[in-house]
């Protein structure tokens, strides 16, 4: 029988192997990736840790704590993506505008 731990660990390991080399020069993202994956691996291997942590911060069950953390991260990621998207949109606008101004033409009467 395939252990649930294996199923949960595999994507985490793949994530690290795939993305860690790609995030060159982006120390913050690299450290976050390492930190979060390490935490994930730790929680998968020793689920009772989440319970202890949950009690420590005043949450009933470890699983609940993980859910709350997930929701929080999800929203933070959403906001980060939104501002990134706005920035890309602004850059795109600038580019499109430059081309429009450069290629402006007077359409003459016949």
């Amino acid at each position: 029988m395939l252990n649930i731990k294996v199923i949960l660990l595999l994507p985490l390991l793949v994530l690290i192997i795939l993305y860690l080399p790609k995030l060159r020069n982006r120390t913050f993202y690299r450290l976050s990736l390492i930190g979060i994956s390490a935490l994930g691996i730790l929680f998968v291997l020793f689920p009772s840790l989440t319970d202890k942590l949950a009690h420590f911060v005043g949450v009933g069950r470890g699983a609940d704590l993980v859910t709350y953390l997930f929701i929080t991260f999800f929203f933070i990621a959403g906001i980060a993506f939104y501002s990134k998207m706005r920035k890309l949109e602004e850059q795109q606008t600038e580019l499109v505008r430059k081309i429009a101004l450069r290629d402006a033409q007077k359409l003459n009467h016949p």
């Binding site: 499109v96 505008r97 007077k106 003459n108």
Partner: peptide, 18 residues
């Protein structure tokens, strides 16, 4: 084409404000 306007084109649709 033959109107005499100055014609500028956005290569991507950006919206009226842009």
């Amino acid at each position: 084409k033959n109107s005499g306007v100055h014609y500028l084109k956005h290569e991507v649709n950006l919206g009226q404000g842009a």
